[in-house]
Amino acid sequence: MGVFATSPESRRRHRSQQVAFAVLLAMTVLLVLPVLAILGMLVWRGAPALSLEFLFTAPVRGMTAGGIWPAIVGTMWLVGVSLAISAPIGVLAAVYLNEYARDSWVTRVIHLAIVNLAGVPSIVHALFGVGAFVLFFRFGTSILSASLTLAIMTLPVIIASTKEALAAVPMTFREACWNVGASRWQTIWHVVLPNSIAGILTGIILQVSRAAGETAPILFTGAAVFVPFLPQSVNDQCMALSMHLFTISTQVQSVPQSITYGTALVLVLLVVLVNGVSIVIRSRIRRRRKW
């Protein structure tokens, strides 16, 4: 027998290694299955409903026919306005927390608040939105109220992801900056932000899918079951894809299945599209930087 021939002991180790591989692979496949199943079912049942007419007309006959255009437009309004509010606030707050704030009990309380805000169920956000924006600030049930509610919901995640992107910028870059006499803000503006913008954008865009998909926070604050016109300003109510899906699948009788699944498919495609754009932007920016 050669020196390097397999011993019974090493053969046993090989076997347990193979078992481990098989189990891990199986779990990974299990993870992918539901995703494929959902997408497959949506495409199979919803694709026949898709047409230009379905996309670009309003629902008719008590929502049992026609299209979903007002809901698409409404979702875009809600997502756009909510991110226009939460992205700047979230990014600036994260810059403060990561670059300026010292470790004191105040910042620890702020961190705790952010973590807890991220864990609040969306229906609670909805109730808060009603109390604060609809009633107290008298914004009424409107795109503004709904977007503010969504903004509060997405804010903690944007802060967290931005902080992570900022923290990934090597400390040596900051030290290099300070050592030529750059102020903190100059360091942030010239070095930290340009090198973390890809991560920051990714974090923000990922919140698009969350804002687009949530139903509870907009249910009482701004989304309506049916609005006969497209929103003209943030003071109007609007329809939304998620809300529309909820309505036609639970509240309205005899809606053809193809319309329900078609609506769901459009919502998913919209989110996939936005995520795709974010991936392209990120890889573009990544290719430019090297360290």
Partner: peptide, 20 residues
């Protein structure tokens, strides 16, 4: 002023830290 001080007093680190 720290800015003026650091203009006059430069520092070189253990690991080279060129900016990207």
């Amino acid at each position: 002023d720290l800015v003026e001080l650091r203009k006059r007093v430069g520092m070189v680190f253990q690991r080279p830290n060129p900016l990207p």
